[in-house]
Structures are given as C-alpha cells and as structure tokens.
Amino acid sequence: MSLGEFEAEVARRAIRCFVELAYPDGNVPKNRAQFVDDLDSATLEQILAKTGVEKLPQESSGATGGNALRIGNAWYPHMKMWIRPYSEAPGFVLGVDTHDDLGIKPDHPEWDQVQQLKARNLELARRIESRWAEEGLPTQEGLLRRYLSDAQPGSSEGDRT
C-alpha cells in the first residue's frame, strides 16, 4: 500500500516539528542533527532509505506498513515518529510511538521512575501530534474528527484539525 501524498516536503515538516518539540533546548544529538540537516536536499526515497528509518511490517492484508523514525527526545532516545498508509485521502497518517514499554512490574524498584518517564513521553507525544494537526498534517485524531464532521453535518468536529 502506498503512502499517498506523503512527499519529501511533508516529511521534512513533520520531522522538523517533532525535533523542535522533542529537543526544546536545541541540543539535538549529533547523528539526529545531521539527519535533519540532510533533509533539505533529499528526496522522499532518500529520506526513507536513511539509517535509522525502519520499514514497518506489511501484513498480507495490506492494512499496515509504512515507516518509523527513531528520533528520540531530550530525556529518552527511543521515541519514534511513524507514517502509515491510510485508505482515504491523503493516503497516510502520522503518529508518535513512545516506544517505552519496558516490561517493568509494579514491584520493580524503578517502577515509579518509569511511570514518570512514560507520562512525560505521552505528554510530549500528544503535543507533537497536536502540532502536526495544527499544521494540517493528518493524524488519527484529525481523521476521526473529519469522519464525525461528515457524519454529523453542522457539527464543528472538523474545525480543530
């Protein structure tokens, strides 16, 4: 399944937005900063072929697939941005995978710290997805709002995307 209208310029906007919020003080790790610097001259194919860009498994159903980029954030290096195909325009959706399921049980000595980390990651993930939506980039939330807006003419669900 293709990624529809996901093009190099869209990828650049989405990645830069992620990086800006994930590293608010501008201290982006060297390899990631280089990745961002190289975006300007890259085609979409070149961006998706870069080191650190994963290809997500496509099931036989074709229902999933797409790519994930491990961009990290200022306190946790494993947070990812994902792009997945979608059956309706624009043909793709962006999302954040906090990627912090560390398998720690409540009796683990670091349980509380891990919960704090996850809460912080989630809050950042929401901010990134909200910013994408503000910039007109497709997110799961935006698609749901659009569906509800279409299903309920006169509703204002579509206004927030």
Partner: peptide, 16 residues
C-alpha cells in the same frame, strides 16, 4: 494480546 484473551486487534491508524 490474543494469548491474553483479546478477541480482535486493530492497529492505528484505524478507519472508524
């Protein structure tokens, strides 16, 4: 998820 008892599994992005 299925081993623990889930009946269905949809991944995001999902269509309503």
């Amino acid at each position: 998820a299925f081993e623990l008892g889930a009946d269905r599994y949809l991944t995001k992005p999902f269509h309503p």
